Simulated assay, not measured.
Amino acid sequence: MQKYLRIVYVVAICLAVGYLSSLVTAESVKTWYPTLKKPFFNPPNWIFAPVWSLLYVLMGIAGGLVWNQLENNRELVKKGLFFFTVQLLLNALWSYLFFGLHNILLAVIEIILLWLIVFETYLIFKKIDKTAAKLFIPYILWISFATILTIFIYILNF
């Protein structure tokens, strides 16, 4: 598979995961989420879709760049892509726990695990492709913010 096709393929997978996650959140954003107490730094709802779309594209490019290094460092790339896949699944799981099940405590626990896996993915990517690692930095920052936001929402609604 050509290098660019790998990147396009991984971007498409990331966007598909984002789309599926949005299906879980759509109803709750209109019904349940507005009833929650939120901290003063909670962003407006309209910001989430464009931010996540951008993050999924950056994440996909990073994953594709790492996949392109398979011939150069097979074991490390396989490890990096494993962690990448796990973080992508955990990313989708958070939406299900928070918006689907309305279980904020489980979402807090899960997003902390997600942050750890995302950071580990970043560290592995950094050993494989510096550009891929840099593309993960906005994601790490957003997940850090989302972790703090989720914790505050839990505290305010406990």
Rank of each mutant, 00 (worst) to 15 (best):
L105T: 06
A107C: 10
L141T: 06
I140V: 08
L23P: 04
E27F: 14
P43F: 12
L55F: 09
C14A: 14
G63K: 03
I104V: 15
Q87Y: 08
L36S: 02
Q69M: 12
Y4N: 14
P43G: 12
F158Q: 10
P138S: 15
N72S: 14
I143E: 00
N157E: 08
F158L: 14
A16R: 05
K78R: 13
L54M: 14
L114N: 02
L123T: 09
Y56L: 02
A92P: 02
Y56W: 10
P39Y: 11
E71M: 10
A49C: 12
L123F: 07
I137T: 10
K78C: 09
A62D: 00
V57I: 13
I124A: 05
N72T: 09
L105M: 13
S28Q: 10
L149Q: 03
C14N: 07
V10R: 03
I128P: 06
L135S: 04
P44G: 13
K37V: 02
A132C: 11
W32N: 04
A26M: 10
I153Y: 01
I112C: 03
N91Q: 05
G18E: 04
L113P: 03
V86W: 11
V24W: 09
L36N: 04
W142Q: 07
T121Y: 03
I140E: 05
V8F: 15
I47A: 12
W67S: 00
L15G: 06
C14T: 06
I117C: 02
I109Y: 14
F152V: 06
F84M: 04
T147G: 09
N72P: 03
F40Q: 10
Y19V: 09
M1L: 12
V8I: 13
A132E: 00
S28N: 15
W52M: 06
W94T: 00
I111T: 03
A12H: 10
K30V: 09
I140S: 05
L58Q: 03
G60W: 07
G63I: 04
N45M: 12
V8A: 15
P50D: 09
N91K: 00
M59I: 06
L5A: 13
L101Y: 15
A133V: 01
N103C: 08
V57A: 15
L135I: 04
K79R: 11
K79L: 15
F48A: 07
Y33F: 14
I128M: 06
Y96K: 05
N68M: 03
I109S: 03
